[in-house]
Write a protein that binds this DNA or RNA. Structure first.
Lengths: 117, 117
DNA sequence: GTCCATACTGACATTTATGTGAGTACCCGG
DNA sequence: CCGGGTACTCACATAAATGTCAGTATGGAC
């Protein structure tokens, strides 16, 4: 029960998708690419995310080694999040995907999303 | 709710992630990169996916314009799926992500996945 | 003492994604 | 008439992801 299950992946893309999780982690990664941000700054940098989900995502990304969490013992509290080397490398790898999205954003927005699901 | 809701995205990466949907579409795209495959061939190329979910994913990807569905009126039935130009371009954009996953697959598999969620 | 700001935590509800297993339609060869 | 092969469809069930909202802890300013 306490054995850490060793997930296996069919290919590198499979693994990368697992790391990326849902719809937020890529955006969080993107937001942090230019340097550390405090919790509240990350929240403002990722419009639409709820506070609780942001915390969950940040914790997951800390566990997977994508980012570092630095706590300053102050009042009011201050916590800074920054990318690790691992996180930076993933961010770099996602660059082309982001560019593809930029180039095709009109087409993507025109998709009849309510008929997709 | 009859109006097709025009989703908007905060950035290109956001849009790309929306297109990629869950954990399967990237793998399906990857499987189709070398040419058309029949339904059963896609299923075998994407281990672990259930038949129903595969159908749903293929339909979504057809709707979003990533792939083309060609029906041959034969018995037994034959349906071939192939990437569109749009699908190919996305596949290309995901190339670096797949390579990143390959390079880091050991590290990713070593993540304590049961403590992540 | 009261309030402020910040970064949380916890209970709960909802939405979305995925999975299971059965059944359908078709023509053909036996 | 039966079973084989393929690509589905349908009803249902569960799991995972996301959302809402209230509450907590802290020390300093007032």
């Amino acid at each position: 029960m306490k054995e850490t299950k060793k997930r296996t992946f069919t290919c590198g893309l499979d693994a990368a998708i697992a790391i990326m999780g849902g719809k937020w982690k890529g955006l969080i990664l993107f937001a942090l690419q230019d340097g550390p941000l405090r919790f509240g700054e990350v929240r403002r940098a990722v419009p639409g995310i709820s506070e609780r989900v942001l915390i969950l995502q940040l914790r997951e990304m800390e566990t997977t080694g994508l980012l570092h969490r630095e706590v300053y013992h102050q009042v009011p509290p201050k916590v800074e999040y920054s990318l690790t080397e691992f996180g930076h490398s993933l961010n770099t790898a996602m660059g082309p995907l982001g560019e593809w999205g930029e180039e095709n954003i009109e087409r993507i927005e025109a998709v009849p999303w309510d008929k997709v699901g």
